[in-house]
Design a protein around this nucleic acid. Structure first.
Lengths: 163, 163, 163, 163
DNA sequence: TTTT
DNA sequence: TTTT
């Protein structure tokens, strides 16, 4: 049955990247999507939407985007439930992203602070596409070093390129 | 910012229609959307997605659709929170429907039971469109009588026609 | 970049199934999507949207759906152009379907005419999912025989099952 | 019936703003949406999607966005036809935008060229929302003056504010 | 060239 | 707390 979600918004914090026991990468993140209308107090509110993304795109998101980054999300709504520590059933509604598009980097994540005089915020047509391939059980090698906040072309082998 | 959701699924129960203190109709409903893939046990799971719709379309939904009805939803994701009786903050993610499309009636809601030999389940191009008009404070008159499960053309004045 | 389309409408005619030189199945079809509003003459118009689907789902669509069938489409807009016989460039805008959902069979395609007293139009959760796998170059075997208009469960081997 | 399109892409040229005989503003524009995959030559292609937007949002788009601007579009697919000068029927498929979101200004349209050392390309949560109100037959007052390419807050009366 |  |  049809289940399709498209969002454009900003990361409320850095993505939270983890690995399953079998080594599959998964990142949780929340995006703030401002509403197109004002409330009765005349204020613009936002919706804070929890999202998940799996595998390579999860690592890419965690490595290149951070708090404040503007992203586009294409995915579906998923619901699940679990029993919390008080034995109460908790119901979760979240968006499982098939792909995340980088619209604008905003964070600096420990490196050269963005902004200043260098003409920041350019857009590259970068997109995480979830290949939905079978989970591979290797440990992923974590990219380190300069986060390349300005999103200029970077010189790495195709294999490592997230986009 | 962009926030768009499209769903096709079945009502898990009859819509829950209420009125605000100022007389605005609002209906809550949950739709089950079957996933397009099987889990590791080979079973097809579903997502149970909570939705809200306001005003006239809320009444139409409540009057014409019921548990098991197949509907299409066009809307956006909304998040909100409240403090429960234990003083704990509870976060809600739901879909606010702009319009609901009737794809197939399935329930009988007190009237002539659907099904049998009469060729049921016909589709009419019926759609609730949320006009987003200012709330009107009148009490809505509740349609009663024949639920018209077979969704044949019905003969009522234009003013009452939900589609 | 984001490009997402979701449609629900009826096939204006039987899907047109063909095979590329290398044996890849592709089906073209048009769906009529009724507009949610009336024009100035008070008439409801429709949009006639050309769609394409590839591989297995193309064959499934051609084998199980026909003129008048209600379907849901999840896909993206694609544009292309070609030079016609007069040497004039022609621009095409169409929807490439990732998946098509069967909402209601309507045609009979040579076999037992649908309808009559047998409770027609039931919905099964059937969906063509485009696996985006590499094209396979075999000739597909064309299913023949009973079109199963009522969409009841059918007893064929898993390999042939479209859903 | 359901008909929903969401796009993120760049304007291929400045929007083309016109007025109907009765004074209703309408803007035509094309956005280039890069495909998320490469073709067999390893090149990334794009789809060039024709769009229309009506009334106030049309004027806003024309006044604030130009060739190269990154926009998000939420709308529906519309088809229409007309007879060309050779008396041949021509079929058109385009997107009617309900709203356009400004993701990044790119053009300068006669004013201070964007870019340079000033940290350009910031995102504001600006969105044209088509109110679908009855056409008003006044001549719209055309905003003039500095196009504010950097999209900083601008100080004009609420009535003129497009977002 | 269009569906219910 | 879930639909076919």
């Amino acid at each position: 049955m049809l289940n399709r979600v498209v969002l454009v918004g900003r990361l409320t914090k850095d993505p939270d990247l983890r690995y399953t026991a079998s080594g599959v990468a998964v990142a949780n993140f929340t995006i703030a999507v401002n509403r197109p209308f004002s409330n009765q107090q005349g204020e613009r509110e936002a919706d804070f939407i929890n999202c998940v993304i799996w595998r390579k795109p999860a690592e890419n998101l965690a490595n290149y985007m951070g708090k404040g980054s503007l992203v586009g999300v294409d995915g579906r709504i998923q619901t699940r439930s679990y029993d919390n520590q008080e034995g109460k059933r908790v119901y979760i509604t979240e968006v499982v992203a098939d792909s995340v598009q980088f619209l604008e980097s905003r964070n600096s994540k420990g490196g050269q602070p963005q902004g200043g005089g260098q003409g920041s915020g350019g857009y590259q047509d970068n997109q995480y596409q979830n290949q939905q391939q079978a989970p591979n059980n290797n440990q992923y090698s974590q990219p380190t070093g300069s986060p390349n906040d300005n999103m200029e072309p970077i010189d790495i082998s195709d294999d490592d390129l997230p986009f």
